[in-house]
Structure formats: C-alpha cells, structure tokens
C-alpha cells in the first residue's frame, strides 16, 4: 500500500505502475497469497461481476443459443490458432524445446489440414493437444515471483507478474511475422472466443461468481492455486494445508489451558 494506490486508479497508467509495484511486493514462500491491494481488487471484482451480470452472461447465452456449435468452435479454434506463434516463441524463451516443437507441429497441421485453424485436427487425430504459453509463464521460468494478487477490471484475476506478461503478450505479438493480417484477425476472433468460453463454462463460472459466500476470495484462491500448479506441477502438494497439524495445535492450546502453563 506504500506504492501510491490512488494513482493506480488511473487505468491508463496501469502498466507503468505494475512495474513499480513488482519492485515492492515480495511473493510469499509459505503458500499464502499476497493481497495488499485487496480493497482496490474487491472494487474491481464488483465491477467485473456487474459487467458479467449486465453483459457477458446474457451475451454469451444469446451467442450460444443463436450460433451453431460447429461455428462457435471454429471461431474459437481460429482465435486459439492465432495464439500458437506466441506460445511457440515463449516455449523457446523458456528453453522448452519439447513444447516448442509440439506447438510448431500443431500450428503446421492446423494451418494446413485444419484449414488455417478453423479446425483442430492436431488435437483430435494427432494427439497434439494445445500447450499454450505466454510471457507470464516465461517470466516465471526466468525466476520472477508472482507478486501481489490483482483483479484487473474486465480482464479478471491476475497478479503482478502475469499482468506484465499479458501486456507484453499484447504489445509484442509474433503473429505479425507469420501473417500480415494476423493481429487484426486475432482481435476479431478473440471476442466470440471469450463469449464461447463463458457459455461453455457457464455453470462453473456462475457457481464461483454467484453461488459463493465470498466470490472474490474463491476466485483469488482458484486463480492463484491453479496458476502455481500449472507452473510448478507437483510442488503444489507441498503447500497443502495439513488439518492434523493444526488439530494438534488446538490440542496443545487445550493442554496449556488444562495444565495451567
């Protein structure tokens, strides 16, 4: 909170301030989540919920009802396909030759057999499922901690590292090297892709946003734990909460009372 939160409200300056914030928000090592901007984040969560209720949820339902499933899937396929060059570059930057090769072949198969990404035969017939990556992942591999948790207006849950990753992803799209109109096409297909995800995950998203006792805290936990899991795999169990240890603590407390220590 020492980093001028008032100025943060000026969204136009967000990228610059994220960089400054990173310098002052250490990542906790004990598996907890650093959330020094909780007050601000909760405001942005309320805004996101209103935006979902007023627009994204009804729009995604209308989109799902009106647009046939194969069309929705193809538009989402194209949006995902146009992200593959970015994934490829980031896998390389992480030194992950395996995933880079996997992504390269996927892109080649789906560009040709999949008719410029309208279909995804790579995942179906070739067993090459999507292995997306972005600059947030690369920063993590390079050793950057996640920093403070952030819920960004309209973009949703993130953290300092991933927010910077997202900005770099948008600013340096390697797609322009592959296809001249690529970035425009990516922008045009990303919107229906977002609506399609909201439509297909409808019940799960509704469950988190509208059925939770504290939807902000649930979303924060889900995003952070899932992100740590994606990045570290097995290590996530190391931070598991051990209820037995903590029950023992309660026993100790009871004993101290009892024995009058």
């Amino acid at each position: 909170m020492t980093c001028a939160p008032k100025m943060l409200k000026s969204l136009a300056l967000l990228p610059a301030f994220l960089l400054i914030l990173t310098a002052c928000s250490p990542t906790p090592q004990d598996g907890s989540i650093a959330d020094p901007l909780e007050n601000l984040n909760r405001k942005s969560h309320a805004l996101n919920k209103s935006a979902d209720r007023a627009f994204f949820r009804p729009a995604s339902r209308a989109y799902g009802a009106v647009t046939p499933e194969p069309v929705r899937r193809s538009l989402s396929n194209v949006a995902a396909h146009l992200n593959e060059p970015r994934s490829f570059v980031n896998h390389l930057a992480q030194g992950d030759i395996d995933d880079a090769g996997h992504t390269f072949i996927r892109f080649a198969v789906n560009t040709t057999v999949g008719l410029f990404g309208l279909f995804d035969p790579a995942a179906g017939d070739f067993g090459l499922e999507k292995r997306g990556s972005g600059f947030g992942d690369t920063l993590a591999v390079w050793g950057a901690g996640e920093g403070a948790y952030l819920e960004l207006p309209l973009f949703g849950p993130s953290n300092e590292r991933d927010a910077i990753g997202r900005i770099v992803d948008i600013a340096t799209n390697p797609l322009s090297v592959v296809a001249e109109d690529g970035p425009e096409l990516a922008a045009a297909t990303s919107f229906p892709s977002v609506l399609n995800s909201r439509y297909e995950l409808g019940e799960n998203v509704d469950g988190i946003l509208y059925d939770s006792a504290d939807s902000y805290a649930q979303l924060r936990l889900f995003y952070t734990e899932n992100r740590r899991f994606q990045l570290s795999g097995q290590a996530s169990a190391e931070n598991a909460f051990d209820p037995y240890e903590n029950l023992y603590e309660e026993v100790y407390e009871g004993l101290y009372d009892e024995l009058d220590f």
């Binding site: 939770s212 504290d214 936990l221 889900f222 734990e225 899932n226 899991f229 994606q230 598991a240 209820p243």
Partner: peptide, 19 residues
Amino acid sequence: DLLIEGISLLKAERSEVGA
C-alpha cells in the same frame, strides 16, 4: 483433501465456510 488442477477443496471450503 482433494486438488483438482491444483485447487484445494480444503482451502476453498475453509475460506467459504469462514465467510
């Protein structure tokens, strides 16, 4: 505890029931 894609049931419910 049960973790689905790294998300802990125990932690989620500790937060939910607390709220």
